[in-house]
Design a protein around this nucleic acid. Structure first.
Lengths: 153, 153
DNA sequence: CTAAAACCTTGACCCGGGGGTAACGTCAAT
DNA sequence: ATTGACGTTACCCCCGGGTCAAGGTTTTAG
């Protein structure tokens, strides 16, 4: 027991693994309530606040956006119990995002490798560096003309 | 022929697939030289400038950072010919970064899936939502004490 | 009691631009 | 020569998820 126990921001940070700055940021973003202050103006957090912070930390470590987390916390405090369906939806969306990102990175990676290993790996430095010359068509045909509206994909 | 040909920023943008904003940004970041201006203050680009922009666009599409690109361009203009070894090093580093990122995302993904599918999938909503309760040890033991210096990874 | 450590607020910065705005420049046609 | 339609200028604010600095107050340790 000891519900009277209040922690300053630095101690709260140590308990949660966050930094004081991050905690202040979460407060500004509305994830954490505005805490009461000591006579000297120090933020004072309760054990419940610490729980909230720990939750935020876990959620962040899963890659959830602060906005998503804020949404969950809001729903939670409105309805008392957290809305599992909503949370699950967010998690599923995140998984989808990750899959998309991984797919994109895989494409990038192969383009990168192809460029790196393009001509000149064989064993001679002639005149062409990868990337620099890749897709390098000289711009000889510049028309200042009016009908230049070449659509650009 | 036609080296006198100068393009305004919008035309340069169309030729390279960049936006005028991006081009101005590259100028501020030192990737593109400060171009001469028309009597009315418009930036005027040469075909060589266009080539540089096209190179930047290719490099960006490979995910290179503006700083890396700036480095390559600087070396290139100092030594005349682009330093293949350096470029290749940058590309290899990028590949490594991508691999690291993908590995990290894979870990995140499985944590996310595990959390999402944890208890309650079976078919009942008792009292626990995933995430919210995951790793949820109540903070009962708060020491205001001095020896709190638990190292933070 | 004094000095150090912790805390306070405000503001700027990182990346790679996107969006918007007011005020000019430029070019074709009338 | 003027009009109208764009193009361009510089400037400032915005995004995420914080980090860092400055300069001042408060609490805590010795």
């Amino acid at each position: 027991m000891g519900t009277l126990l209040m922690l300053t921001i630095g101690r709260a940070a140590k308990h949660t693994g966050l930094t004081p700055k991050a905690i202040r940021l979460y407060e500004r973003r509305g994830l954490i309530r505005t805490p009461p202050r000591s006579s000297g103006g120090y933020r004072l957090y309760t054990a419940d606040d610490i729980d909230t912070m720990a939750f935020i930390r876990r959620a962040r470590s899963l890659g959830l956006a602060l906005e998503d987390i804020a949404g969950i916390l809001t729903l939670q405090e409105e309805s008392g119990t957290p809305p599992c369906a909503t949370v699950r939806g967010i998690l599923t969306q995140r998984v989808q995002d990750i899959d998309d990102t991984i797919a994109h990175l895989a494409v990038l990676r192969s383009a990168l490798v192809a460029t790196r290993d393009s001509e000149s790996l064989p064993g001679e430095a002639h005149d062409g560096c990868p990337i620099v010359n890749a897709g390098h068509r000289r711009v000889e045909s510049i028309q200042t003309g009016t009908r230049t509206s070449r659509p650009k994909p």
